[in-house]
């Protein structure tokens, strides 16, 4: 039953798939950002999982260590890395949402297909305009 023992990896995989699926399938620009967040979060879980050891302590000097007994401790590096990655994720989300606000301001909608439709119409109108004067 080792595959069950790796349940946190399974959660990573499932979350990653859900996140990617939302990004691809949703037409709402905010929902896409939500999907992107889920996707990124799944990776945070991956990193944290790999650093954690069952029954491991924090990497600090404990009494047991002072007594000379062997102590299992979790690897702190992935946690630290993910702190950075979380910051990056927040920045990405903020920037993405800022874009959405600007898009809403100039298009009046945040639905992808409507935006596309508006762009196409603008293109057609423009070509007709150009067609008038060779």
């Amino acid at each position: 039953m080792t595959w069950l023992g790796h349940f946190n990896y399974w959660i990573f995989v499932v979350l990653m798939m859900i996140g990617l699926y939302i990004v691809i399938s949703r037409g709402n620009l905010v929902k896409k950002i939500v999907g992107l967040n889920v996707f990124q979060t799944s990776v945070f879980l991956l990193y944290i999982s790999m650093g954690k050891i069952w029954d491991g302590t924090a990497p600090i000097v404990t009494d047991a260590l002072m007594d000379g007994r062997p102590v299992a401790y979790s690897n702190p590096v992935p946690h630290v890395l993910i702190l950075t990655a979380i910051v990056v994720g927040v920045a990405t989300t903020a920037l993405g949402l800022a874009f959405v606000v600007r898009i809403k301001e100039s298009y009046g909608t945040i639905e992808e297909d409507e935006i596309q439709h508006m762009d196409e119409e603008a293109f057609l109108a423009r070509s007709e305009h150009l067609g008038g004067q060779p």
Partner: peptide, 27 residues
Amino acid sequence: DRRALTAAYQYLVLGTIGATFILIGIG
């Protein structure tokens, strides 16, 4: 040109996916 906004948004989404894939690989 307002299409710059949607272009940037699209770039952001795909770029983030790419970067996150790289992050998974490194992990």
